[in-house]
């Protein structure tokens, strides 16, 4: 499968978290769930964003109240299909197994964008 970038174990870990990690996933949360250092997940997220697999947006709310904003990441509809396919190819299953992940995504969230 042509992903357009080098797929490492860390990339698969991040994709797995994005696929099963639930809502409001930001860098630190993704890193913790993937069991990777925080600094190392951002190059992966940036790469995935550049390929259109991942979309991100700033958290909303009063910035004065909480200081710097977090940025939430999720798979785009295209990325969702590609990630499932890639994980099935490389790990045999796209099902959650290796990581401590949050609650499952809301029903119907996949088509919300």
């Amino acid at each position: 499968m042509a992903s357009g970038f080098r797929v490492t174990d860390a990339t698969l870990d991040v994709l797995e978290v994005l696929l099963h990690g639930g809502r409001d996933l930001y860098g630190l949360k993704i890193a913790k769930a993937a069991g990777r250092p925080t600094g190392s997940v951002f190059p992966i997220l940036t790469k995935l964003e550049g390929c259109g697999w991942v979309v991100s947006e700033w958290e909303t709310g009063d910035p004065a109240a909480r200081g710097p904003r977090r940025r939430f990441y999720e798979l785009s509809p295209d990325g969702l299909v590609q990630a499932r396919q890639l994980l099935t190819e490389r790990r045999g299953t796209a099902a959650r197994s290796r990581h401590r992940l949050g609650p499952a995504p809301r029903p119907g969230w996949e088509g919300s964008r």
Partner: peptide, 22 residues
């Protein structure tokens, strides 16, 4: 954690260059 961001700076720069070059 801050040193982690610093250590990954070259990879981050590459990813950004790839993203904005596409």
């Amino acid at each position: 954690a801050a040193f982690g961001y610093l250590a990954n700076l070259p990879r981050m720069r590459l990813s950004i260059r790839h993203r904005s070059g596409t």
